[in-house]
Amino acid sequence: MMITLTVNGERVTRHVEPRRHLIDFLRLDLGLTGSHAGCEHGVCGACTVRVDGEIVRGCLVLAASLDGAEVTTIEGLTDSGEVADLQEAFVARNAAQCGFCTPGMVMAAADILAHHADADRAAIREHLSGNYCRCTGYQAIVEAVETTLAARREAVR
């Protein structure tokens, strides 16, 4: 079937098979390989992307159901500069090692920055609880988010 949607601000029209999930659609049909497919059954969070402004599991969304939707991936988020400071903090804290979880982690962390400016460590951990990282032990990631939140609060003072 044919779908037309907006991906990172660009309109795309494509033929998709119903069995295609959003991550395969992004990676295989559009060549956007920043979103990762890990477990493909909703557990790991590596596939986290935005649909209509809210984070979702890309592996648990049918591409066919997204006619008219607006999708933002890590590529679009990066290009917009929305989380440039968070990405710098990830590098500074060594919050990415192998990098497999990182795009999903940044998408989930961006949701905290956008909607929960007052989140403390416990709230950050809770919000990221659906994103697995097998390398960092999470401390560096939580710290990167925490320092970014603190710096943004400082900046608006």
């Binding site: 809210e54 979702v56 599991r57 648990l60 969304v61 989930a108 949701d111 919000h127 659906g130």
Partner: peptide
């Protein structure tokens, strides 16, 4: 609600 899965799953 906060006990049900994770934010990305709760959005759907």
């Amino acid at each position: 609600v906060p006990h049900i899965a994770h934010p990305a799953i709760r959005n759907r």
